[in-house]
């Protein structure tokens, strides 16, 4: 079995005296999509932020294997290293696209920023890359000079994805990527994400409260409740034969269409 691309051991985090997550360990292998499901307050977003290096856990370790390297502890990396990773090998798709975009610059500049940040200095090439990625996320290339605030919610979310993927990251973190979007828009976005993950061979950690999204995107699932992992396993196993009482409750609560 291949080496994990991301690993965490005994992650525990407190906000003051409030326990957010406790004793969480997991491995993510290249090409896998891990879904983290749970209801509000389960600690899933906290865990995601810790895995993405945005939050330092009260206890526990997170390790990431850089391209061609072996697992390196995040807290042994310098801040510049982590900030560079966040712009190159990692991607973070926020629930609200406004948190992941620069609203005051054009779509093309949004996509090109990461390239410029790593030293690209050819305007023509940067623009061509922006056009390419707009097409990949099914946004009309004519809108390259438009501001994101003129885009619909679904388009903003797709722009956020394009902005993140332009540097060919290997690991994508997603926080409720379809939250707040209309159902038809969700379907299109999920299809896009699914396709991109497959064709680009991405590894991903997706936080969602929507089990259908989890089923569609992830190959493995962990179920969180009250900051703890109550069940983890293959997606089809957790959703078709949940073992833990809370998992059974979650699965049985979904309304059938």
């Amino acid at each position: 079995m291949s080496e994990p691309i991301l690993r965490c051991r005994e992650i525990t985090h407190y906000y003051g005296r409030q326990m957010a997550c406790q004793n969480i360990s997991l491995d993510l292998h290249p090409g896998e999509v891990l879904g983290i499901v749970g209801e509000s307050g389960s600690g899933k977003t906290t865990l995601l932020k810790i895995l993405a290096g945005q939050l330092k856990p009260t206890d526990g370790i997170v390790a990431f294997a850089k391209e061609g390297g072996s697992l390196t502890l995040l807290h042994e990396m310098s801040e510049p290293e982590i900030r560079l990773l966040a712009r190159t090998e990692w991607a973070f798709v926020h629930q609200n696209p406004r948190d992941g975009l620069r609203m005051s610059v054009s779509a093309g500049a949004n996509i090109g920023e990461r390239l410029m940040a790593i030293g690209d200095r050819h305007y023509g090439n940067i623009r061509a890359a922006a056009v390419h990625w707009l097409k990949q996320v099914e946004i009309d290339a004519e809108r390259i000079d438009d501001l994101p605030r003129t885009f619909s919610g679904g388009m903003q979310q797709r722009l956020q994805i394009a902005r993140n993927l332009v540097t060919s990251p290997r690991l994508v973190f997603m926080d409720e990527p379809t939250g707040g979007l209309d159902v038809s828009v969700q379907a299109r976005l999920l299809d896009l994400i699914r396709g991109l993950v497959r064709t680009l061979g991405l590894s991903a950690v997706v936080v969602t409260h929507d089990l259908a999204v989890a089923r569609l995107l992830s190959s493995r699932l962990i179920v969180m409740q009250g900051g703890k992992v109550v069940e983890s396993g293959l997606t089809d196993q957790v959703l078709e034969d949940p073992q833990a009482p809370y998992s059974q409750l979650l699965v049985s609560s979904i309304l059938q269409v």
């Binding site: 620069r102 054009s106 093309g108 500049a109 920023e113 990461r114």
Partner: peptide, 22 residues
């Protein structure tokens, strides 16, 4: 301050890119 400290100047070129685009 962080951007200067870490030489993260991509944003400066974003401004110039916008100029050319516009």
């Amino acid at each position: 301050r962080k951007m200067h400290a870490l030489s993260e100047y991509g944003l400066m070129h974003v401004k110039l890119y916008e100029d050319i685009a516009r």
